[in-house]
Amino acid sequence: MAFLSFLFRRLGLSLFVFVGVLILTFIVSRVIPSNPAALYAGARPRPEQVQEIEKKLGLDKPLSEQFRVYVGDLLAGNLGESYHSRRSINTDLRLFLPATLELVIAAVLIALVLGIPTGVLAGAYPRSPFDYATRFAAVAGVSAPSFWLALIAQFIFFSQLGWLPLGGRVSRDATLFYPIAAQTGFYLIDAALSGNWKAWLDAAHHLILPALVLSAYPVGITIRMTQASMLEVLSETYITAARAAGLSRRVILFKLALKNAIMPALTVVGLSFAYSITGAFLVETLFSWPGVGKYVTEAVLNVDFPVIIAVTLVVTLVYILVNLLIDLMQALLDPRVRLI
């Protein structure tokens, strides 16, 4: 019961955030000196053409009226149409968003699987060679530019070793001979659902390099956060008490201490998740990954406001949901956290 009321209250609060973001981005898009109608019309339009388009798009109406129309469309589930390509944004996002989410989720999973155990051990053996090595790796992972990492990774695993493909989500062979039946847009899930294991392997192969490159930052930050909070937790009396009770080092580190230390790491991973959706742009470009990062960057360069607003709203939504999930996890982990 407490859980449900917490959930509803949090969703209610989130709605405020969402509406705030909506209003802000909408206003910004209208006050920035640019001419959407001219953009829509294409190269060198005549003034009467522009006027006509303004009328068609409703840009001649007062701002409040425009906003009302936009919200109405939004409530109907319609994100509008790109001024540049004149394609439906819904259709585009259905294509690009799963690609990005698949990539980002893979990167975040790598961060958790790699970063947390590494951070635990680094925290358990402070000032050891392992600690210093992971500190170096973590700082390198956080500060190395992703395009540089991408180039190095491609050079090693594609050019030199030939183990992994250069880019794309699947190989041409896969699209031709065993195409993935699109359902969710997540290739790994779609391929698994239809039992298309050849395509699944192919998609997984393509996912490895970009996911690894994208995970450099979350891995680094997960290691650092886990290490720092492990250090703190390991100095607590209950850890001394556990040692005095003769519990094994493995149980103490990975059960008793980690449960106390994991929350800060999960929090930053959650934040980096939302950040990576748009931040994945460079990685997506270098690996020819048809994702949102690339999509929104083109929209920004073209001052394509409907797309910019739509992507902003989607990212806001993901951000809200991820944070909600993390709060729930915290309540699940810590009985002292009351859901208020």
Binding site: T240, A245, N260
Partner: peptide, 13 residues
């Protein structure tokens, strides 16, 4: 061993 402050000697989670 038994500790001074049981509130900190027992694991809260």
């Amino acid at each position: 061993m038994i500790f001074q402050d049981p509130a900190t000697a027992l694991n809260p989670l």
